[in-house]
Design a protein around this nucleic acid. Structure first.
Lengths: 199, 199, 199, 199
DNA sequence: TATGAATGAGGATTCATTCAT
DNA sequence: TATGAATGAATCCTCATTCAT
């Protein structure tokens, strides 16, 4: 209880820097983001950045780890409800959750997800994937008749990637042609149709 | 008739530079690509780059325009067959075509598609989208009973984005969990299920 | 009598810092030495450094003053013997003393002497010079016939600088071509020959 | 003969940068020398520095190699005379040559030699040493009676290091106590006495 | 008195772009 | 038209120094 204050301050500092980084990337893109920008945004000096992170890349790493963890958290939050309801409703719930995550803090996270190439997001997504597969498994155990096990892996992969990518693409679109609700319903339909899968 | 040779040479030059740019990005990523690299790869001097392009960004623009045009071309090539066959087979044909495009020249184009954030690929994708919608329209006109028109727009959007993203994600994966054929079949199933759409 | 303890502690602190500084320079060179390093090595915080020294340069100053004082001390220790024996033996004794000084504490002082350029060592050497001249004077007064007074100043200068530099150069050499003893004997011969000096 | 101009310009550029580097170190010391300074002094931009040198350290390397080569050149120039005359006169000639080298261009080279620690001058001095030993050998072969071969190596080592160091030390001294001529004569005496060496 | 987090000026280096040849 | 040397703004990062605790 003695030296907690420092640790708390440090943790807050780290978080402030991460938030500033997300903010900068959201505002100026990845190329437009400099250490100076991040420092200014975080309200600290450049030097301070380097007291908490080895280099700029480390800040970026922390940023996507933060994003990944938050997604996992918010997905965990909806798990209980999901296993109770039908698959389509479950997917819809997840999509809402994910959509909410991408748009919070003025779309701070959305932009990061567009830099799939730089951030090696794919590796991090695998964590989310695992999480989703577990959720799906829970559901499928309760409804064993709805999908053949051998197709499950591929279809989960498709549903997940499709859901994530399409949502990101839609939210990044400055002038979408239809409502978000329509898209989500469509995606849920897609998912449901996939596991019915009599094709 | 006099200055044709020059124009042809110029066109070849422009194309060489674009190819060199794609090559560099594929090899070193976007951040690892400098004008020097591109010039070397193209076998010309940096100065020459600026004789044909306003700046580096213009080369990048040309790169994705090139990519986009090639996709459209290859899609056009399969159109005739597609309208003859059933929807699922059509989608499968398109997926094969697209997959082939992404992997040709040692995955030269694949990497570019991973930098969705930098290149504003979305705008360019709209061109492909239009193309796909036209193809779909042709098909649907022949099978008017299979999908409600009002859902068509959304479902096409979903199928297209899902197909593209999932394929790119799969091809970028160094250690995928299942065969490419399985994925493509799955995506075709998904597409087919989507337009059956009794969900 | 009250504040003696503090003064003693302070003196010890100052000395610890100086030793840490010498250690760091010996280990990482001058450029590789930061205030942080010195503080760590001394087991204190950077702040403490500045409680005892105005700035980094002041620590360096103290370091060579310390070195200088230690040399002078060790030379004083051999003075009594020197004036008793012949010049060559005296020089040899001094060389041994100096060599011992340069190598103690794992060559801590040796490295410092290699940075003649940065530390303005020459000014500090003058103190040693004076000391040596006094020692020489004592000797010469006892053996007035061995050297012409007018040449003495120059020859002492030469002997001293030559002895110091050559010794440092030799000790810094990772793969010397002959034994240290041979060098010292040679230097002693050189000194002896110098003051015989019938050239 | 076609593309010589460029190579000549490049060679001149490299040399200009080296000279600028020497100038800067002479003026501001090693720590006071920045790439900006060197570029300004050379009348070019920082970028140009990096077109000819990998990094700052490479410029420093080139500087001492340049210095070393020039010394060797100037020593070669006096070799013929030296072997004709007596040893003491030979040493004196070398000292004059070396002294002239150190002072030319306003002592540009002198300062560099003071940073023995940073520049690993010792390795480079070995080249000069070899040169001197060869000169000495030539002399000794003509006067085989003057020194015992087994002592020669050590004495040459001593004479050379002593000569160089003492000269540098003297020239660096802002207020020397005696004339340069006196020092040189003294050093020559020292050398001569050394090889007589009946000690 | 001791701490070490915070500062920010300053340094090395890169690279898109220009322009004289 | 092609070249590639030269430019210098801009970037990342370091580290001596300060100061609130």
């Amino acid at each position: 209880m003695r030296r907690k204050p420092k640790q708390i301050r440090a943790k807050r500092m780290v978080d402030d820097i991460i938030q500033a980084g997300l903010q900068c990337v959201a505002k100026n893109g990845l190329e437009g983001t400099t250490t100076r920008h991040i420092a200014d945004e975080a309200g600290v000096s450049v030097g301070t950045l380097y007291q908490y992170f080895d280099d700029k890349e480390a800040i970026y790493q922390a940023m996507i780890e933060k994003a990944r963890d938050e997604i996992v958290q918010s997905l965990l939050a909806v798990t209980p409800q999901i296993v109770q309801i039908d698959f389509r409703s479950g997917v819809l719930a997840i999509l809402h959750e994910f959509s909410h995550f991408l748009e919070k803090d003025k779309g701070r996270y959305l932009k990061v997800f567009q830099y799939v190439g730089h951030f090696e997001i794919l590796e991090h997504i695998r964590v989310i994937e695992t999480q989703l597969v577990q959720m799906a498994s829970l559901y499928i155990m309760r409804h064993p008749d709805e999908i053949a096990p051998e197709r499950m892996q591929v279809m989960i992969y498709i549903i997940m990637n499709s859901g994530i990518s399409t949502l990101i693409r839609y939210l990044s679109d400055p002038a979408p042609q239809f409502s978000r609700e329509a898209l989500m319903e469509g995606l849920a339909d897609m998912a449901a149709a996939c596991i019915k899968g009599d094709a």
